[in-house]
Structure formats: C-alpha cells, structure tokens
C-alpha cells in the first residue's frame, strides 16, 4: 500500500492580463483548482483559457494578481517539479529533429545534474511513462511522424516522466480520435486516483460530465466554478457561450445528459 502522496491545489487570485496591443485578455480572474480533482476549464474561443493557463504556468507575467500552487509561488513549485504542462498541438514545432524518446526524457531534465546525463532511474521512468500511454513502439519516431492522438500521448508521457503533481493539459482532445480520447480519459482518472491535480481546458463539452469532478467557466473572467453537477448547467453554459446560437447549445447539452445517464 503506497503512502498517500501530498496533494496540491492551484489558487488563482484576482489575475488580470493585458497584451501588448492593449487587449484585455483576462480580468479579475479568481478561482481554485481543488487538490486531487480533475477540473475542466470551459469557455469559447478567445475567452482567455490559454491566457489563464499561461499565467498559472508562469509563461506570462499577469499585470495584476497572483497564482499559488500548493501555497507556493509558481516558480518555486516549478523548481520542485510540481507542475507539468501538456501544450496545445499548435504550440509545438513538429518538424524539430527530436524523437518521442527525446521528448519524454526532457521531462526528467529538472532532476538531472547540469550536464543532463540520464541516470538508470531516468531511463526507467521514461520507458514506464511511454508504456502507460502505449507509445513504447513509437519511441524512436521523429515527433512529426505521429498521428494527432500519438502526439498528445507523447507529451502526456513527458508530463508523467516529470512526475508533476499538478498537470495542466491545454486542449488535449483536439485532433484526437474517440478511442484515444477514451484511453486518455482513463489515464487521467488513474492519475487522479494517485493524487494528482489535473486541470484541462477543453471544447469537448460532451465528455466533461463523464470524468471531470469540477468545472470552471471562463469568458474573460471566471463566470462560475464548482462541482460539475451544480456548475455545468444549461444556464451557466448559455451565459458562458453567450455568442453561440442557443439551439446548438441545447444539442450539446442534451448529448451530455444522454452520456451521463
């Protein structure tokens, strides 16, 4: 029986981000990602999902507000290898001359000495991570030679190899077939059972209630957050996706209820 590992929350406190062109991408966003949950970040395109992710990961400096992970400032949490990030597909240069194995090994760099020479433990964890996502036989492929689902799994394996306790996945299901999506969801559920805190941003409203414990609704600011059952309601979604034709939303929402029952 493994000892329960400590769990970490993400606390976003009054974060505002303005880009160079003076466009307000996010204002007064405050929310909490509870430890040991799978939380979905939901909002239409351009609602600031990626901006909030980048603020949480410290890739951009908010004009105002702060983010804490497990009570620590983001940089400290990152130095302790608490935070792993699975990027959106279009943030990656798929022509870069690295193999799947190389990419997953990059998850271990934070544990290595300055020369980044992998130890037997690093190699073992890389292989185990590849195995968990079913990518062992593709490990020598250049990353551009993978299908959409395999690409996602390669970067998920990197997050696993990093052993981060908090995992952020930006649009993990875009360009992924149904079978792979289901496998990835199973893996996320396992990770939750192991005590990881998982935040995913997604367009795929249909699957949210099947595996997400909590939902954060975002459109330039936090509109609602809470348990999926209480928060992921038709009213809240209509408020969040205000621009969408209502009939389309009803369809999506009916789909959710069918799947959930």
């Amino acid at each position: 029986m493994p000892t329960p590992s400590p769990r970490f929350d993400i606390a976003v406190d009054n974060v505002s981000v303005t880009y160079n062109n003076a466009r307000l991408a996010l204002y007064n966003a405050s929310c909490t990602v509870e430890p040991g949950t799978i939380t979905a970040l939901v909002g239409p395109n351009g609602s600031g999902k990626s901006t909030l992710f980048k603020s949480i990961m410290g890739f951009l400096q908010p004009n105002q507000g702060r983010v804490r992970v497990g009570g620590l400032p983001v940089q400290k949490a990152q130095k302790r290898q608490l935070m792993a990030y699975v990027p959106q597909a279009d943030e990656v240069d798929w022509n870069f001359p690295v193999s799947v194995f190389d990419v997953v090994m990059m998850g271990r760099y934070g544990y290595m000495n300055l020369l980044r020479i992998p130890s037997p433990k690093d190699r073992r964890l890389v292989m185990e991570s590849l195995e968990r996502v079913g990518m062992v036989k593709y490990r020598d492929r250049q990353i551009g030679e993978l299908s959409g689902g395999q690409k996602k799994r390669a970067f998920l394996a990197r997050a696993l190899a990093q052993e981060g306790k908090v995992i952020l996945l930006d649009e993990p299901f875009t360009g992924v077939d149904v079978k792979t999506e289901k496998r990835m969801i199973d893996l996320l559920l396992q990770l939750r059972a192991e005590g990881h805190t998982i935040l995913i941003s997604t367009h795929d409203l249909a699957s949210i209630s099947t595996f997400c414990d909590r939902v954060i609704l975002l459109n330039r600011t936090i509109l609602a957050e809470g348990n999926t059952a209480d928060t992921f309601t038709k009213e809240n979604l209509e408020m969040t996706f205000g621009g969408l034709p209502l009939t389309k939303l009803h369809q999506v929402f009916d789909g959710v209820e069918v799947q959930a029952s």
Binding site: M57, G58, F59, Q75, Q78, K79, R80, Q81, M83, A84, Y85, P87, E91, V92, D93, F96, V98, M106, G107, Y109, G110, L114, L115, R116, R158, Q162
Partner: peptide, 20 residues
C-alpha cells in the same frame, strides 16, 4: 556542456520554464 539545455530551449522554452 549546455547542449541539452540549449536544444530544449530551442524546442520548447515553455517546458524549460515549467521544469524550473
């Protein structure tokens, strides 16, 4: 001495930041 870090930096600076 720094070839691996430099390659990581060229490939994915965000990940470099994420691992501290």
């Amino acid at each position: 001495l720094r070839r691996k870090d430099l390659l990581l930096y060229c490939f994915d600076p965000n990940h470099a930041k994420a691992i501290g």
